[in-house]
Amino acid sequence: MEPLNLAVIVKLEPDFSEGNVSYKPDGTLNRNETKSTLGPHSGIAAKAAFYAKVKYGAKISVCSMGPPWADIALQQAQQTCDADVLHLYSDRIFAGADTLATAETLKTGIEKMQGKMDIVFSGHRASDGETGQTGPQTAWKLGFTFIGNVISYDVNLEKRTVVAKCLLTLNGVPNVIEEIEAPLPVFLTIDPSYKSNFTTVSQRIAFEKYQKEAYERARNFKQSLKVFNIDELGVDKTLVGLAGSPTIVYQVERIPKGKATRQAEVFDGSNSEHIRKVVAKMREALSAMVIK
């Protein structure tokens, strides 16, 4: 049986945690002062790939399109999924790409990876832009079966199929979990509620072993990293970057604030007089709820 060959596409995003994020006076994000990190949804995709590493001993490649310093996103992803190979597609020509042009770059990169690809993973969306369609578009370009909103999956190595559970959220209808079986190769986008489930001692021991290996590899991540410029990648210049983007963001407007309809009173938690007032209000509200 051939070992599974996997790829994960990831994105470098601003770190929105307190103490790391910085804003301009007009309230917009100051990208120069804000640290960057692996996008949280990309992290979940890497976690999902790691499941196959632990369970099936899969080979994992992680790739990203971004500036040279996006290698830290790859490093973080490697620490999550114990990736064997890291690809960074970095060239000035790639700048200004919309999701379709990004998909073209990623597709070309994935096709350049060694061996026949079985599963490609991506996150559900990004935290700094509505670019959730990059995954599906890459799948379409690769010609892989696409399965979205995956919350868990397993691979049947003999049949060479994947069985995935997907979360369907429909307006006004209770959530539905759909189970889909599809022949490899497939492209999975991973739902934020994804959870890896290891149920035996041997799987858990393998999990710990690969996790340790991942930590070591991530420490020396440059050894597994390969950076491609446009020529090395060999992609059509008209299909990538600004030139290959049919859509352009030409203006960003702030969402106007809605008019508040409720009457809010502000209480200071450190003022005991205020606390007393809140308790009295709560008591009033609670006693009104008692059915007499």
Partner: peptide, 16 residues
């Protein structure tokens, strides 16, 4: 409110 939050974040960052 937003300005207050910016100051709070900046102070946290500086102390850190």
């Amino acid at each position: 409110k937003e300005k207050q939050m910016q100051i709070r974040f900046a102070v946290t960052k500086l102390i850190k």
